[in-house]
């Protein structure tokens, strides 16, 4: 359950940023999570309520933008969508690839009052 560490990391970022902006609380938080980031969304949602209790995020709406995985084949330069880390290039079947996107794990924005 490393999602708990992740959720608490999100809370810390929100607390820090809200304090810097002298905001009372956060009304909305936007997260960007890539499908290859290693985060299980069900687990994150499961522990979310307990992680945000008594914090600036307690009443915040949570919006998660899911970022698809994209890779580029090192052997033939084909760009393709990746759902799993071991997906081969659909053109030449090579497993050698660079990951272009999908590893994101970011707090994109906060709406505060």
């Amino acid at each position: 359950m490393h999602e708990l560490s992740i959720a608490l990391g999100i809370v810390k970022i929100a607390e820090d940023e809200a304090a810097k902006a002298k905001a009372e609380r956060v009304t909305k938080i936007e997260l960007e999570i890539g499908v290859l980031s290693g985060i299980e969304l069900d687990s994150l949602n499961f522990i979310w309520e307990s992680a945000i209790k008594d914090t600036v995020l307690e009443f915040a709406e949570k919006e998660i933008v899911i970022i698809k995985g994209k890779g580029k084949c090192i052997d033939c330069d084909t760009e393709f969508e990746i759902e799993k880390l071991f997906d081969p290039c659909p053109y030449c079947n090579s497993y050698f690839k660079g990951i272009l996107q999908g590893k994101e794990l970011r707090v994109k924005a906060l709406e505060v009052i």
Partner: peptide, 15 residues
Amino acid sequence: HNHKVLEIEQDILQN
């Protein structure tokens, strides 16, 4: 009014 959007773009694992 008091409503602000903070575009922070911060990596959660940054620490």
